[in-house]
């Protein structure tokens, strides 16, 4: 079992976590206060001022620090709002899949038998179907808006959580302290909530961070196929995909959103890795 204060001390000592925390805090602040930071509205068009390069490469008539896109919108402002949208999708989708996966994983691991079989076979089925195919199919039917996107991504990610929680539950179930809880007559629910779930938290934390990175990349991929966030709503993936036809003409359109995604993903991954070092859960198999 993990002692809280001990973990905190270890985290403070870990350079990876320190560095990535700074990135993540900045990202979250940018996303939260997008409307205060962004110099322009992300929808504000200046058609006459389109495809202007960043400030230091000569400029248009107004100050667009990172230049403008094909409709004369401010790239910096759109990135700032894009961070918000991407984070929102990441957080909500991961929340959905984590809740769903943890619930099913606990049931499968704790009760075993037929529950386990059914839940794990469903997970296997879904794991065997490339999720991007599944996602495309659903999005094409339901249309593409933020809610559908979050739901689709959320429902294609739960398997990792279920498998992990199930595995941990299986091994915990046999432990002495669970046995003694039974002996004093604790209910199933109490045992799950009080003894089992808290002990999966360490692994969950790591899985959640790594999954978050995956989800943001997935959103970008779906946007590339035209199935992500709809214009004019800015998301980093949509911006990157819109920019693909301007790569040789307006490099700043793809470079800055691309770098932003890279920095965020790197921050999340570093954080996850650091957590893994500190918490030391056994994750290789999930």
């Amino acid at each position: 079992m993990i002692k809280g204060s001990n973990v905190l001390r270890k985290m403070r000592g870990n350079k990876m976590i320190l560095f990535s925390s700074i990135i993540l805090v900045i990202t979250v602040l940018v996303g939260t206060f997008a409307n205060l930071i962004a110099p322009f509205s992300p929808y504000h068009q200046e058609l006459e001022n389109k495809l202007k390069p960043p400030l230091w490469r000569g400029a248009g008539t107004r100050i667009h620090f990172l230049g403008t896109d094909h409709l004369g919108r401010d790239v910096l402002s759109r990135i700032i709002y894009g961070v918000r949208v991407s984070l929102l999708i990441g957080i909500l989708a991961v929340t959905i899949s984590a809740i769903f996966g943890i619930f099913l994983g606990l049931i499968a691991g704790f009760y075993g038998g037929i529950f386990d079989d059914i839940i794990m076979r469903i997970a296997d089925v879904q794991l065997a179907i490339p999720l991007i195919l599944l996602a495309i199919a659903v999005i094409v039917v339901l249309g593409s808006n933020v809610n559908v996107l979050i739901l689709v991504i959320g429902l294609t990610q739960w398997m990792a959580y279920a498998r992990m929680v199930r595995g941990e539950t299986l091994s915990l179930r046999e432990k002495d302290f669970i046995m003694s809880a039974y002996a004093v007559g604790a209910s199933d629910l109490r045992i799950i909530l009080r003894y089992i779930f808290p002990n999966t938290l360490a692994s969950l934390m790591v899985l959640i961070t790594l999954n978050m990175a995956l989800v943001i990349v997935l959103e970008a991929g779906l946007s590339f196929l035209g199935l992500g966030i709809q214009p004019p709503e800015p998301s980093l993936g949509t911006m990157l995909s819109e920019s693909k036809n301007y790569i040789s003409r307006a490099w700043w359109l793809s470079t800055f959103p691309g770098l932003t995604i890279m920095i965020i993903i790197m921050g999340i991954n570093l954080f996850g890795d650091g957590l893994r070092d500190v918490l030391d859960p056994r994750l290789e198999n999930y």
């Binding site: 970008a220 590339f224 790569i247 040789s248 890279m262 993903i265 991954n269």
Partner: peptide, 22 residues
């Protein structure tokens, strides 16, 4: 490897087309 994990693949692909291909 961190960079490899954070580059969106389609971006990498198009960049390669531009640089290596064209």
């Amino acid at each position: 490897t961190f960079i490899g994990q954070s580059i969106p693949s389609f971006w990498l692909g198009i960049m390669m087309i531009m640089i290596v291909g064209v």
